Lab assay of single mutants.
Amino acid sequence: IRCIGVSNRDFVEGMSGGTWVDVVLEHGGCVTVMAQDKPTVDIELVTTTVSNMAEVRSYCYEASISDMASDSRCPTQGEAYLDKQSDTQYVCKRTLVDRGWGNGCGLFGKGSLVTCAKFTCSKKMTGKSIQPENLEYRIMLSVHGSQHSGMIVNDTGYETDENRAKVEVTPNSPRAEATLGGFGSLGLDCEPRTGLDFSDLYYLTMNNKHWLVHKEWFHDIPLPWHAGADTGTPHWNNKEALVEFKDAHAKRQTVVVLGSQEGAVHTALAGALEAEMDGAKGKLFSGHLKCRLKMDKLRLKGVSYSLCTAAFTFTKVPAETLHGTVTVEVQYAGTDGPCKIPVQMAVDMQTLTPVGRLITANPVITESTENSKMMLELDPPFGDSYIVIGVGDKKITHHWHRSGSTIGKAFEATVRGAKRMAVLGDTAWDFGSVGGVFNSLGKGIHQIFGAAFKSLFGGMSWFSQILIGTLLVWLGLNTKNGSISLTCLALGGVMIFLSTAVSA
């Protein structure tokens, strides 16, 4: 259960009878995928790494000078000259100064003066180019299975845990398959586009800190620079940016070097996208990844198990997540596992009318040892309800109150669905055939309105939902006002479609 501690969480529900669903994975976010007769899966884009970055340009932001020398000439005696002028490691300046009897010249006039100092770069920052084909995306998957609280967001041991898996995709191999043991396998067909235009970005490294910066900004930095990788004795261009020549006297000129420019660069980098280094690879934390999940090989585990009949206890007080759902960790005293956990939410304890829904599909106890633990997640209705676990006299209950409203949740879900469709863009549509167009249209309606429909009408039977949709269509056909007619027709059509397409 990876997503319960992530604030940016998206719930995606598969269409009834569908074998695939489109998701948008982004750094700092987590996606929970639910479908009829399929286990619930949490998917998170953990890291995006980039390798084989080529150094484009380096800037010196802290330097020192040494070996200063000057040469001067009297008027009419030609130009002052130093051998160091031809050495690229030196920074030199030529000027004219007033000369006369007082400073060793027989004539009054302008004399030539040249001053040089050896330039040494102490600290530099480097910009590297990123090729999209060198990106690698690491995705962690977790099935809502027989897990306890100690396994949440624990990325170790996934090789031997059938509840978890790690997959890596690249532009050259965008397809992967996550093996989930008894739950089958989940196929991923990803489109490795981060949403960032790397043709316009460089990877900047300064003092063990890293950013993504725009090329134009990078090339306009007014500091000494050299092109390409460091060859040991780089040729620094624009050395004068960190060196200041003071007022010249008759035979000498003082040279000083400016202080470190790291603070000024940090100020200019305010708002830039931060990154990290992992050995020789860069780690990015921006952008998104679009994936199509193929769920035809994914299956529920323990459908044929019998119900657990022994007593359950709450190991922890049920807690609310950031998303309005409830996490419950229970301990089973029996030894008759594997068995299914009898769990439901009810409005009252007399009729036990089921409300809400299970995020953890078909929760089971897989071990036959005593005191096995299991964590599950529920989506309670707004208002008061009861969490009921167990059967008969051994069942345990917990009162729950959820604040908020169904309308607010439906609106929030619609906005999130619209954002998801905007990110998917043209990849969500198939114009290759008439059937493809209608299929894409259905998927689009489901992406945007599916979660809201589930919130508003999830407790009704599909037949009642179709009746309401048919009534809206009838009202649309018999209303003389054009805008009201079109609105009723659209709402009725969407409702009829979703009542037959969205899983219960």
Rank of each mutant, 00 (worst) to 15 (best):
Y137V: 05
L441I: 05
L242H: 05
S199V: 04
P222Y: 09
P75Y: 07
R2G: 14
M375E: 15
S372Y: 03
G287N: 00
E240L: 13
T48R: 05
V388A: 07
S64P: 02
Q465P: 08
H249L: 08
S499W: 13
M295K: 12
T267A: 13
E136W: 14
L477E: 01
K340E: 10
V12R: 01
F245E: 08
C60F: 07
M375S: 14
Y59L: 02
W429E: 05
G5L: 00
K84N: 13
K209G: 04
T313C: 14
V12L: 02
A428P: 07
Y305R: 00
V437K: 00
G181T: 05
R357G: 09
N481A: 13
C488R: 00
L307H: 00
Q131S: 03
H235I: 02
Q344L: 09
S185M: 05
L475R: 01
H266M: 13
A241N: 10
D83L: 13
A319L: 00
D426I: 02
D98Q: 08
M277W: 06
K480V: 14
H401Q: 13
T205N: 03
V265A: 13
L188Q: 03
T76M: 08
Y158T: 09
Q131L: 14
S403Q: 00
I496V: 14
V343S: 00
H148D: 11
K373C: 00
C74Q: 09
K297W: 02
G5I: 02
G28E: 08
G232V: 15
L467T: 10
F119S: 08
G404I: 07
G324D: 11
G18V: 00
A250H: 06
Y305I: 02
L135S: 00
V473F: 11
V91Q: 01
A319H: 02
K239I: 12
P174G: 05
D393A: 13
N207S: 14
I466V: 15
W20G: 05
V388Y: 02
V303F: 08
G383R: 08
N103F: 07
K209W: 09
G181R: 05
M34G: 04
R175K: 11
N8G: 03
G392C: 01
L358F: 11
G100V: 09
D430A: 06
Q85R: 07
E370L: 04
I448Q: 08
N154M: 09
G109L: 03
S122D: 08
G187Y: 14
T170G: 03
P342C: 10
Q447D: 03
F314I: 10
E370W: 07
G442C: 03
P338H: 02
E55N: 01
A410I: 11
A248T: 09
L467W: 03
P342W: 13
G157M: 05
L467M: 14
S129V: 15
V347C: 01
T321F: 07
G271V: 01
Q85M: 15
K110A: 03
K128H: 05
A311H: 05
L352D: 11
F183P: 03
K123Y: 02
S461N: 15
T315N: 12
E177P: 05
C121T: 03
A176D: 07
R252I: 07
T487C: 14
I466W: 11
Y332P: 06
R292I: 02
W217E: 07
I139Q: 04
R164T: 11
A490M: 13
T335N: 11
M68V: 15
L441T: 02
G28W: 05
D10S: 00
E168T: 01
P192N: 04
N52Y: 12
S306L: 00
D71I: 07
A346W: 15
H399W: 15
V56S: 00
W101G: 05
G127K: 05
A241L: 15
Q77H: 07
D155N: 10
N439E: 05
S86I: 15
V169P: 02
P222L: 12
M140G: 15
L498G: 02
G417D: 09
T470P: 00
P318F: 09
F285E: 04
A227H: 03
T427R: 15
S58N: 14
H226A: 13
R292Y: 02
S385Q: 12
D87F: 05
C105T: 03
D296C: 10
